[in-house]
Design a protein around this nucleic acid. Structure first.
Lengths: 263, 263
DNA sequence: GTAGCGTTCATACACACGTTTCAATCCGTG
DNA sequence: CACGGATTGAAACGTGTGTATGAACGCTAC
């Protein structure tokens, strides 16, 4: 029945998805307009609504195609690992099970390094649509991994664990979204022929302290107390509280007095 | 000469800034329209362009009023501390000098907890305007603190240090922007009468490992290698590379066949 | 009281957005 | 060749945006 699959010039659908992926990676969901997408894909403006029904449906399809396999692999790896080590896992290992499937998927396919940046964008995009999609579609996997972390760190209260996980994942996604990560990987690979395992271990060694670090020690508290004292004695005489808003002194609107008539 | 300061009903300017601050905190720069701002401030739409000249100028004024004093205090504290401890500072102490002025400013003024969330938004907002403003106006302070960190961590190559700093600050701002931080603070304060210094020390103890953690140890690398093996053996048979895009099987556009005619 | 300045108001402009419509095209099937 | 469904094309709609304009208002000073 799938005879008319490739009718017409017809890979418009594919080109639209690719263009969408690119623009999303570059600027996030809000900066991604249908006119930009269709122009980049060499398609007509109406093509998006014809093939997908709406802009949101387009984005959902892209996310589903990219994230579903990834999260399936993550769950499978977690299950296999829990079965193989029934006596418990370390937090670093659980982190590894989040990263390794992403790492593998980004190596095999043609999308190559773009996949990593897509991941970063998805997890750091502030738009309600993206956020809602993630929460709606991937709550099970979030829960599974939360439980895994909870077992790996039984001393941590669940609320505190949630906080630290937010913390760690924000750091990670903020990093992946930029181009810094690519530079890091290439620069490392140039410096010495480094193993994939070493690279991943290095990444995880940055993240796992966020989860495992103990609360502030007395020594650290003492350092902070000294700083607080120094700050109090250094701070300029308190500006009158909250009158800071009143800046314009008199007369015509302030912006007209400054030199920026040009531009 | 500043006699006509309070002419008319006239605190419109102040109300506009406050409304802007609220809306920016809630949704970021892009979600903040002039019509929303003026409606919330009980002012006319044209008021923004009259008092500030443009939307961007409004935002610049808000950011300048909030961030300039903060960063001045930070620099002053850093200078005082370097003078007091000419033999060098620890990374945790330098982190403290970033946080303590923000902490103090958020305690004194009426703006109270909003100031913290404003900070989080500013540093995590993805819009080009906000990013550009930060880079243009606060490059000196960034440089100063980068040097301070560099002296505190002489073993770290500068590129690696830059990476880890990005990492740490992304984590921090992502955390501050949400409401989680307020919950954390209040929940901590409820659990036990905790000192300001202890709270700050706890925060810093989460962040400083990102800067000071050593590279992956051989033991960690070994764990990752085991996981990689397990992943390779577990991964489902490779889907044909990158044909994942082709989903529609035949006939009419896929979205029309599904049940979502409603809504 | 009236002239003048600072401020507010309603309204309009030009543009970009997502979506819709309907005619024009393609191409396999009869 | 001609029919018909799948696809593409050009143009328009309604809404939201930032900005601009000019009249109306309030107050102070002469």
């Amino acid at each position: 029945m799938n005879k008319t699959q490739r009718t017409g010039h017809g890979d418009t659908r594919k080109r639209l998805l690719e263009a969408t992926e690119w623009l999303f990676i570059e600027g996030g969901y809000e900066a991604m307009s249908l006119r930009h997408i269709t122009a980049r894909a060499g398609a007509n403006l109406a093509a998006v609504n014809y093939h997908f029904g709406s802009k949101e449906a387009l984005m959902q399809e892209l996310l589903s195609q990219r994230l579903d396999p990834l999260n399936l692999d993550r769950l499978q790896l977690l299950s296999a690992c829990e079965q193989q080590h029934p006596d418990g896992l370390g937090a670093a290992a659980v982190l590894g099970m989040l990263f390794i499937p992403a790492f593998r998927l980004s190596h095999g396919n043609t999308s190559g390094p773009a996949f990593i940046r897509l991941l970063g964008r998805v997890y750091s995009d502030p738009s309600l649509f993206i956020r809602g999609y993630l929460q709606d579609h991937y709550r099970p996997i979030s829960g599974r991994f939360f439980e895994a972390f909870s077992r790996a760190l039984p001393a941590l209260p669940r609320q505190e664990l949630g906080l630290r996980l937010h913390f760690a994942l924000k750091a990670l996604s903020g990093m992946l979204a930029g181009e810094d990560m690519q530079e890091l990987i290439t620069s490392i690979n140039k410096g010495a022929t480094i193993n994939d395992a070493e690279l991943l271990a290095r990444l995880i060694s940055l993240l796992s302290p966020i989860l495992t670090a103990p609360f502030g020690t007395p020594a650290q508290v003492k350092v902070i107390e000294q700083l607080l004292d120094l700050d109090r004695s250094t701070a300029r005489i308190d500006r009158a509280a909250d009158t800071s808003h009143i800046a314009g002194e008199s007369g015509a609107p302030q912006w007209i007095k400054e030199g920026r008539l040009a531009s």
